[in-house]
Simulated assay, not measured.
Amino acid sequence: MKFYVPLLEKQGMRFNGTPRYIGAHVEFDDFNLITLGERVVVSDHSHFLTHDYSITTAEIARGVIPKNDIALVRGIEVGNNVFIGKKSIIMPNTKIGNNIIIGAGAVVRGRIPDD
Rank of each mutant, 00 (worst) to 15 (best):
I34L: 03
D115F: 13
D30H: 08
N16Q: 15
P6R: 12
V78W: 12
K2D: 15
N98M: 07
A71F: 05
G79A: 06
F3E: 15
K2F: 09
N32W: 00
F28S: 02
I112R: 00
F83Q: 05
Y4Q: 10
T57A: 10
L7Q: 08
N32D: 11
D114S: 06
T50K: 00
I112V: 07
R39E: 09
S88D: 06
A104K: 13
D29A: 05
R20V: 15
L33N: 01
Q11Y: 14
V73C: 02
T18P: 04
I90H: 12
R62I: 12
D30F: 02
S88N: 09
F31C: 01
F15C: 07
D115S: 09
I89S: 15
F28D: 02
N98A: 05
I112P: 02
M1D: 08
G17W: 00
P92R: 09
I22P: 05
N81V: 05
E27R: 07
K86E: 09
A58M: 08
V107G: 11
E77S: 09
K86F: 15
T18Q: 13
F28Y: 09
L8G: 14
P92K: 06
P92W: 09
I90S: 08
N99K: 11
K2Q: 12
L33A: 01
V41I: 14
T50M: 02
F15M: 11
V73P: 01
G23T: 04
V42P: 05
I84H: 12
I70N: 12
G63N: 13
S54A: 08
G97Y: 04
I89V: 14
S43N: 11
L7N: 07
A24F: 10
S43R: 14
I84G: 07
T94D: 08
R39T: 03
I112S: 01
D29V: 04
V108R: 07
N32I: 00
N68S: 08
T35A: 02
D69F: 07
H25R: 11
M91V: 01
V64N: 13
V40H: 10
R39H: 12
K86P: 02
G97W: 04
R20G: 02
I100E: 04
T94V: 06
T94P: 01
E9T: 04
M91I: 01
P92C: 11
G79E: 08
M1C: 11
K86M: 11
V107H: 13
H25Q: 11
I65V: 14
